[in-house]
Design a protein around this nucleic acid. Structure first.
Lengths: 209, 209
DNA sequence: TCGTGTGAAGACGTTCACAGCT
DNA sequence: AGCTGTGAACGTCTTCACACGA
């Protein structure tokens, strides 16, 4: 199936399925039904089957899906498993925590550099990622051909940095700042707004009392 | 309008509008059109108007919305602005960063306690939130009637902790672990999966080359 | 009989386009 | 004239329900 025809929502689920499958492989399970995998992934069975239908016939009727083949099919569909370089801007609280976050590495990413107005401020915090001053940002991106950036600067500087990133040729920004970024169409932004998530959750919780 | 009839997506946008309005108030702007506010919030004007229609006639045709009144209306609609207590479980990298994250406070939350298997491990990291051992978790929740929890433990322990939280009477979990949690219907889970967000972004970026 | 694959139906969310107020 | 408020059209995502193969 055509790659561009997949939606962001489906993609999220594929990544979750992948994770569940890894667990099944570790446990030596060879076959899984749509209902079992769906339950593990937190979706409905029909949805899972629809999602998997994206890459043709894989399951066996009356039996289920072969775990290995399915994992391969998803991996292949998602494409390059090669190590992707990422940079991080803003080495504050959150930024330095993310530098140490190993979930990125496991997902095939490597934070190859961080940038901050005061690079020395994180010295001694057992950080292995090199931290550079902000004015070297553009040349770094262009020389290393970095495509992805994690943005953890305070809200009031986010747009400014986003402009720099866009001009330097970044393709995607994972934005942790509480700011709606205006970027050219060549740049994709993915917002992770922690305060918003908590407020949202809070609303639905206080309702049900 | 009935509160329960609002969707999660709309709620996210309302929170964003609120933030934009705060900025307008700071700048002393008194009136804003749907198109201007929509642009700041990163949505289409028609959508904004639909969202605002949830709480009746506020705008003035031919003119726009009075900033103050609109902000009040949203605040009132969303309900309690009172300080909400939150606990945090897992004082690792991410957990301790979140304890220091001031975005939660600004959103009307207070992290009143953290829990970790090794509470002393964060000593000296200039953390002002008290960190308790895990076995005091249930009684703490019940005594302080905490409704919200931020879960930052490693994936392999997430479900176990989620069970404890559910039994203790928690209403909402903001889950940072890369795990699909199975919880009773009385508990709402909001997932923030950092690795997934980056992988998702990466997919859409590498496509367009 | 069991579980996949899938068209059709349904639910939901967004956008359009215009009536109506200021 | 300008901009809101809103029914209707449109598009997308999800769920159902059943045919079909193992």
């Amino acid at each position: 199936m055509d790659k561009s025809s997949i939606s962001s929502k489906t993609l999220y689920r594929l990544l979750i399925y992948q994770r569940c499958l890894r667990k099944l492989i570790e446990n030596g399970i060879e076959t899984v039904s749509s209902s079992a995998l769906a339950k593990a992934a937190g979706v409905k069975p029909a949805q899972l089957r629809k999602d998997l239908a994206n890459f043709g016939q894989i399951g066996t009727r009356g039996l289920g899906y072969p775990v290995d083949d399915l994992a391969d099919a998803i991996r292949e569909f998602l494409g390059s498993t090669s190590l992707q370089p990422v940079i991080l801007i803003g080495a504050g609280n959150l930024g330095s925590a993310l530098m140490r976050y190993d979930g990125f590495n496991r997902g095939g990413f490597e934070v190859i550099g961080a940038f901050d107005l005061f690079p020395q401020s994180v010295a001694g915090k057992d950080i292995t990622v090199p931290v550079y001053p902000m004015d070297t940002l553009t040349t770094f991106i262009q020389q290393k051909k970095v495509k992805l950036a994690i943005l953890c600067v305070p809200g009031e500087h986010a747009q400014e940095v986003a402009n720099t990133l866009s001009l330097a040729g970044i393709g995607g920004i994972l934005n942790f700042s509480p700011t709606v970024l205006q970027v050219p169409p060549s740049v994709t932004v993915n917002n992770v707004d922690l305060a918003l998530e908590l407020e949202n959750l809070s609303y639905f919780v206080t309702q049900e009392s």
